[in-house]
């Protein structure tokens, strides 16, 4: 049998998944009653002690929980019990605002840095110092000045999304081929028109790569930020379920975070493809 490569790859993917789930199932299943004890004592001790069952939920538990969440993602039973869909919507919303603002700020600044060697040199020390700061380090300062936990989370997303987009934009703009700029010069194209008709399309693939990296980082950081600020969001959900000792829900949330991150990246990859030109 010689199936096409994508099909064979998909088969291997499924096999690996099946092996993983099987190993997981075997590792977490109970070993049966370990010793005789009075039913009341056994009730107190729970299945970990009475049946040798691991405290880690098995794949069937997680699968059932996941199905439960998927069937009813948007329920709202008060501040500590909201559906996973609502929590994800909160997180995605924060990322969209913080990250969207960051792109709006970073692209023009990156343009300026890329076009002006003076600004490149003048702003370089700031970027070099600000870039390596963990965005969460801004959190206390944000909470103190903004005095709103949700806005502080958005601010942290804004800060962490700035740098890759800004640096890639300036690089893309500075690397626009001399011959294309010469075409604009010989056609007496003005500065403004040149920026939009030559530099922007020429740098667009590089800019979009930065935008995509920023998007990935924003999604990484939102989970940690929401663990700190609490209230709503998928990060808060994870921490809340940890406090509830519901490992099943924590695992479900981890899977959900991965899935949403993948979708966000796919969307950005599609957008990057739109502005990429073959040479």
């Amino acid at each position: 049998m010689t199936a096409s490569l994508p099909w064979r790859a998909a088969l291997v993917t499924v096999l690996i998944f099946a092996a993983f789930v099987l190993a997981w199932h075997i590792a977490t299943r109970g070993t049966g009653a370990v010793q005789q004890m009075s039913p009341e004592y056994a009730k107190l001790m729970g299945s970990t002690a009475t049946q040798g069952k691991s405290a880690m939920p098995g794949p069937l538990d997680v699968g059932a929980k996941l199905w439960e969440h998927v069937r009813n993602p948007f329920y709202d039973n008060g501040p500590n019990d909201k559906g996973i869909g609502i929590q994800i919507a909160y997180s995605v919303g924060r990322v969209m605002i913080g990250y969207g603002l960051a792109v709006l700020v970073a692209v023009p600044i990156g343009f300026l840095i890329g076009m002006s060697p003076l600004m490149n040199k003048a702003l370089d020390p700031y970027i070099q110092i600000l870039k390596p700061i963990s965005p969460l380090a801004w959190m206390p300062l944000a909470l103190y000045t903004i005095k709103d936990s949700s806005l502080s989370a958005i601010f942290v997303i804004f800060v962490c999304s700035l740098w890759p987009t800004m640096i890639n934009t300036s690089f893309g703009v500075a690397q626009v081929r001399k011959e294309w700029l010469n075409v604009a010069r010989t056609l007496e194209v003005g500065t403004f028109r040149r920026a939009f008709t030559i530099i922007l399309p020429a740098a667009a693939p590089t800019i979009m790569t930065g935008v995509r990296v920023s998007g990935g980082i924003a999604w990484l950081v939102i989970v940690a930020a929401e663990m700190l600020v609490g209230g709503t969001g998928i990060g808060y959900f994870v921490w809340n379920e940890w406090n509830n000792l519901s490992i099943t829900n924590v695992i479900v949330a981890i899977v959900a975070i991965g899935a949403v991150g993948m979708v966000l990246d796919l969307i950005l990859a599609r957008l990057t493809k739109l502005v990429t030109f073959p040479e």
Partner: peptide
């Protein structure tokens, strides 16, 4: 540079997009 003097470059230097 001027529109009165057109240049045909060695590399074609077309805008690929």
């Amino acid at each position: 540079p001027s529109l009165d003097r057109a240049v045909i470059f060695q590399g074609h230097s077309l805008l690929p997009w």
